[in-house]
């Protein structure tokens, strides 16, 4: 199986469900759910609740983020929504507005 990549010029309005890893460089509006890791690249726009494994976020996310593993908000990330994960890092230069839930 190969990972899913939503390229920089591509917009998906709807639901993306994956058994694998998902990388977003473009736009997703709706719902994003992956069994594997999720990467939101710098420049990406996600207006969706995200569910998945380990997450690296460097783009813009409006929605609630739920990870079975860790969430890394990297430099350039802009997240508005609640984050639930066992481990969370927020890098210098990341913007975040919302609640953190690390209750396992």
């Amino acid at each position: 199986m190969s990972a899913t990549i939503i390229g920089p010029g591509i917009t998906i309005e709807g639901e993306v469900v994956s058994d694998d890893e998902v990388t977003v460089s473009g736009t997703v509006r709706g719902k994003l759910s992956a069994r594997g890791g999720v990467t939101i690249e710098r420049g990406a726009h996600v207006e969706a609740d995200i569910q998945g494994g380990a997450m690296a976020i460097a783009g813009s996310v409006t929605g609630n983020v739920v990870s079975s593993d860790r969430v890394d908000l990297q430099n350039g990330a802009r997240v508005i929504g609640n984050v639930k994960a066992t481990r969370i890092t927020i890098a210098d230069g990341a913007q975040f507005k919302g609640n953190v839930d690390m209750d396992t």
Binding site: M1, S2, A3, T4, I5, I6, G7, P8, G9, I10, T11, I12, E13, G14, E15, V16, V17, S18, D19, D20, E21, V22, G26, T27, G30, R35
Partner: peptide, 25 residues
């Protein structure tokens, strides 16, 4: 390709934009 919907992935909705797209899912 600039985008790929992998074999284990299901998209329900509209896909729009520019660039090559591979659909394996």
């Amino acid at each position: 390709a600039t985008g790929r919907i992998g074999a284990g992935t299901r998209v329900r909705g509209r896909i729009a934009g520019e660039g090559g797209l591979d659909v394996e899912g």
